[in-house]
């Protein structure tokens, strides 16, 4: 059962991942990315971390992608959809991608350690309580640093999106820019 679910989720995730890169219209590729993120959240449940799955949906799907779509809708992308697809340096890029893919393929197939499941017994799902305790004790400093970074990003986004003259568009951008 689990195996079938994994195959289903990973197939859809891979397909929509390709669509992100291949779609001409940014809206389409954003929606493909949303699909991909939802599949990845489902995979997180298979990996025994429901909390991360919900956070994934909350932050990535509910906030980041909505923000993306908001910006895309504010800009005029109809003419973008007709513009040139690839960059000038595309051949070099293709080469790099090929090397990267080959390298990963090589590492994954030649390394025998990960091809078998070495944990015996069913792995237990760590509770949210454990997760929270570890986060707030052992990783307190990184946590605080992350929150400061979020604050800085918030202020930065507001400053960037703010225009000199107070036009009406600022309010919308502010509303979009403040989130996360």
């Amino acid at each position: 059962m689990e195996r079938e679910f994994f195959l289903l989720f990973s197939t859809v995730a891979t397909g929509s991942g390709f669509l992100v890169v291949l779609a001409k219209n940014p809206i389409h590729s954003a929606l493909a990315l949303v699909t991909c993120f939802v599949q990845i959240a489902a995979l997180f449940i298979l990996l025994g971390s429901p909390f991360l799955a919900v956070i994934q949906i909350f932050v990535y799907v509910g906030a980041i992608m909505v923000l993306f779509l908001f910006v895309i809708m504010m800009l005029d992308v109809r003419k973008e959809a007709r513009s040139r697809f690839l960059t000038k340096g595309a051949p070099l890029g293709f080469l790099v991608i090929l090397v990267l893919a080959a390298e990963m393929f090589f590492l994954l197939t030649r390394n025998a350690v990960f091809s078998t499941n070495i944990v015996d017994g069913v792995p237990t799902t760590p509770s949210i309580k454990e997760l929270g305790l570890t986060l707030f004790s052992e990783y307190l400093l990184p946590f605080e640093v992350a929150s400061v970074i979020l604050l800085v990003a918030l202020i930065g986004a507001v400053v960037l999106a703010k225009t000199e003259e107070d036009d009406t568009a600022t309010k919308d951008e502010l509303a979009g820019g403040v989130v996360k």
């Binding site: 956070i55 932050v59 990535y60 980041i64 970074i149 990003a153 986004a157 960037l160």
Partner: peptide, 18 residues
């Protein structure tokens, strides 16, 4: 942490973009 930092990154990136 990755998710948190990504959120910050996207906010700034979209701000720069606008």
């Amino acid at each position: 942490f990755v998710i948190a930092i990504t959120a910050a990154e996207v906010a700034v990136a979209l701000g720069i973009l606008v």
